[in-house]
Design a protein around this nucleic acid. Sequence first.
DNA 1: ACCTGAACACCGTTCAAGT
DNA 2: ACCTGAACACCGTTCAAGT
Lengths: 197, 197
Amino acid sequence: MSRPAAPRRQRADATLNRARIVAAARTLFAERGSAVQLPEIARVAGVGIGTVYRHFPTHADLIEAAAEQRFAEIEDFARNECVLHAEPGQALARYLNHVGEVLTADRGLSAAIEAARESTGSEPRGETRARLETVIAELIERDRAAGALRDDCTVADVYLLVGAISATIGNRSGDWRRLLGIMLDGLYPRGTTSTAP
Amino acid sequence: MSRPAAPRRQRADATLNRARIVAAARTLFAERGSAVQLPEIARVAGVGIGTVYRHFPTHADLIEAAAEQRFAEIEDFARNECVLHAEPGQALARYLNHVGEVLTADRGLSAAIEAARESTGSEPRGETRARLETVIAELIERDRAAGALRDDCTVADVYLLVGAISATIGNRSGDWRRLLGIMLDGLYPRGTTSTAP
DNA sequence: ACCTGAACACCGTTCAAGT
DNA sequence: ACCTGAACACCGTTCAAGT
């Protein structure tokens, strides 16, 4: 799945172990947030603790790897649902709504998003992230062209809003849909935003 | 300062120690966030670790105690600056702006705010918090009466927005003023919001 | 009543030994 | 080249002994 043709050849068991670790991390993070103990992940994955550290030197690396597939899924949704099937001028609104739903379902994703914001600019890596950024820019362009979205909206703004939604979902209590509603009213001057399901 | 007339009499050294601990926690939390180690706080306060635990059984208790004065200061600002001297219809906007500035200056306050949201409803304690809530309701009432604020804005909304600002400030990178600007545009339909200093 | 800090428990991380 | 898990370091928390 991930890394179809890795630049450096790995031993077969190494690739397998890596996949097992990521799989275990994904389910555990999703269920109980990114604070799960590494020993537990190792146990579920069926490998030694040292192996986890060999593949993912820092905790953030593992979180990122576990989140990568979700990012890809989100990008997919953006390309298909938002760009193609969303009501005119409502592509970004639909996107933000979807991100909120994914964040609700996967408790570990918030940490990945926050971590991603910290490393912005320092390292150019993250091909998935780069592609996602392109789609977001496209959504903005479309809604702006439709005359619905405010003129000064940038990709950075979208990250800002996603971060806010993410934090609200993380801290329990406080419904993120209401927050998104207010923010969308700020983004779309015309007031045509209907978030109602 | 805090607890002018405590219900239960304490021994003199106990009260003194408590004050020392809170003072140490306040400066350390403000400088380096709420993740400072308890042993360090105890050392700076000049007391044993056990004493810290005696006064503040859980970490959240200490955070709350350290933040209480800030909450009182914020309430003061709301009563004086916002209610009295703010431009008509801009009381809440001024309030949110100020909260953001305080949060920027005191890195430990975010944790207190998040903790406060979690305990909402469970325990009625927090006289300071109750008074703050009253003022916020007043700010909302005023701006709404001036026809500037949207009709459905509640106190819970304000907590929601403060939480979002708090989280944005916490995760570095990503300017909270921009976020607040968008949210304010969502709150004030007329578009008269000038956050510019 | 209250303070103290050594002692305990726990978790993250490393690294020598093994395959 | 990679895996393993015992060993180390660290930090939060408790509690028996002291005042």
